[in-house]
Design a binder for these strands. Structure first.
Length: 151
DNA sequence: GCCAACGTTGGC
DNA sequence: GCCAACGTTGGC
């Protein structure tokens, strides 16, 4: 089992939205590096930190579980969708998504606190300029963030 | 709203 | 295959 961190803008889709829906697809990943991780490495049963970006309180806010591995993101074929990709080929979809299930809210752990923690300096999240929307989390980093949330 | 960092595009 | 221009991300 592996650990991940998924970024989302709460104005669009927040941890509360996920709680209300319980299970949701995680669509709209349009970055090849993130896509490759979703496609090749994110598996059913993996746990996911939900991270709120581009908002007042940026940071980790909860946990979800992957309940379905990679399958084609159908929004790439929908001209009405913000995630429409005119170059996407239905025979060979270029974008994929996974399904996640709500697990729990966590006490808010701010980005500032994550950045200030020496044990987390290797996280892509806190590295300057990193914009990955799907990134791996090590078991040690996961445990540290759980500890921070319960302090 | 600013702007640094990064990814993508497209001409050559 | 290079690289300049452009668009996007995302913290502040």
């Amino acid at each position: 089992m592996a650990y991940w961190l998924f970024k989302t803008e709460p104005d669009t889709f927040s941890i509360d939205t996920l709680k209300a829906q319980q299970v949701s697809c995680w669509e709209g990943v349009r970055n090849y590096q993130a896509r490759n991780m979703l496609r090749d490495e994110v598996k059913e049963g993996d746990l996911v930190l939900i991270y709120h970006s581009s908002c007042k309180d940026v940071g980790v806010v909860g946990i979800a579980e992957v309940v379905r591995g990679a399958y084609p993101d159908h929004f790439q074929f929908d001209p009405e969708s913000d995630y429409f990709d005119p170059k996407a080929d239905p025979e060979n979809p270029r974008w994929i998504m996974v399904d996640i299930k709500y697990r729990q809210h966590l006490p808010y752990v701010s980005l500032a606190k994550l950045k200030a923690n020496e044990k987390l300096v290797e996280m892509p999240l806190v590295k300057r300029g990193n914009r990955l929307s799907v990134m791996p989390v090590t078991a040690a980093q996961w445990e540290e963030i759980m500890a921070m949330a319960s302090r």
